[in-house]
Amino acid sequence: MRLLYPFLCLLCALPVFAGEPPDLAPVKKWLAKQDELHTVQADFTQTRSLRALRSPIATPGHIWFGGSDTLRWELGEPAKTIVIRKGETYFLIQPAKKKVERYKADSIARHGGAMGFAMMNFPIAKDFADFTRQFDTLAVSVADNRCHLEILPRDAQAKKMLEAIKIDFDTANGHLLAFELATRDGSSMRSDFTNVHLNQKIDRHVFDYDFTGYEIVDGKN
């Protein structure tokens, strides 16, 4: 999990634009709207364009966000990889291997092992001040209610690995439309969100998982 770190650090950055400074008003508005987010449910398709592959790999997934510190993220159909966050603990579940890796949230944040978890982090910053503290903004463009934001974490190690984090969101309702990690080797990992439901009641059992018969180990960052 050590190499997760550079990716995770992507979450922490702010704007560096040599010429005209980008207009961050839509971002400010979007981040302010995130305060109104209590729950989120969405389907997504994750597309991995790896430099070593001739064509991208697309995998469907689903996410449930139940307020701060509560999350379920699944990849594959049926799910091959599941991440559940409960309070300060992340559980990375691999049903096929009957294996669970346990991570402390603060340890992930500290050691950067969380990069793999970055794709499922809501919200990406507490507020605009936190956003500018963590990220450099590379570009902002708006077309037809769709804002395209490109940012880069300020963290030096993350910068070494990453070309950009690309986020698309709906300026009208604040819906996250796409989230992409672009690495310097030319690869990328993009999630396109569909069927987004905001602030709808989620069955709390979604965030439970029966670990009977599973091997549970502490994950190494």
Binding site: M1, L4, G116, M119
Partner: peptide, 11 residues
């Protein structure tokens, strides 16, 4: 490669 969330493993 399509399922792992570990960038290390993917890389």
């Amino acid at each position: 490669l399509g399922e792992s969330i570990s960038p290390q493993e993917v890389a």
